[in-house]
Amino acid sequence: MLTLDKLHIVQGEFSLTADLSVPTGARIAVMGPSGAGKSTLFSTIAGFIRPTAGRILWNETDLTRMAPGDRPLSILFQDQNLFPHLSVVQNLGLGIDPKLRLSRADHARITQALARTGLQGLEDRKPAALSGGQQSRVALARALLRARPLLLLDEPFAALGPALKAEMLVLVAEIAAEQGTTILMVSHDPDDARSLCPDTILVADGKTLPPQPTESLLNNPPEALKAYLGP
């Protein structure tokens, strides 16, 4: 279970509070107007921003002062998810051991992950030689190998077309089901939220509201969300 315990994030004029918990294995969409602080919230959970007050807990473990790489989570950003100068295998290897000391068993796991994400035969390519969809798959495969219990998706598929994006979301759902991963996903698209996430966290007006059923929230949106979603 992920718990945001009386969390308060302040950055200059910007301020955001969060006091909620997310059950293990849940798939949660995070919605809200631009600039409301969705990415800031993710950066705080992932450890790039230190909160002004409050704690971040995974089950009983306090993550608040933990280094980003030690936290029980993987995060996929909007861009720069791969190192462009490293091959696909090396990029995936970093998910197993940051020092890239890979055993034979590790290589076998990488091969499996590549097969699972439909990337066979692309082992030695550099990211620039992959399509946008393939790059997203490599990033997902790395998350698969890291097998951390929490996965944060900060719009990693925003640059993909609708069909590819839907394909990725299906893959995410499958992987999450296999590994029992808890998912938090920033979303601008109500359809994405509906398809993958039964529950939604709303970020607006400096507050983070606890998860509520996505369907009823979208059918009956509060003022802040209504303005953002449009008619």
Partner: peptide, 17 residues
């Protein structure tokens, strides 16, 4: 951020990044 999220640090970071 990517390096930090993967725990890439020290000599490995120097060598691979």
């Amino acid at each position: 951020r990517l390096a930090a999220s993967l725990g890439l640090s020290g000599f490995a970071r120097l060598r691979y990044l």
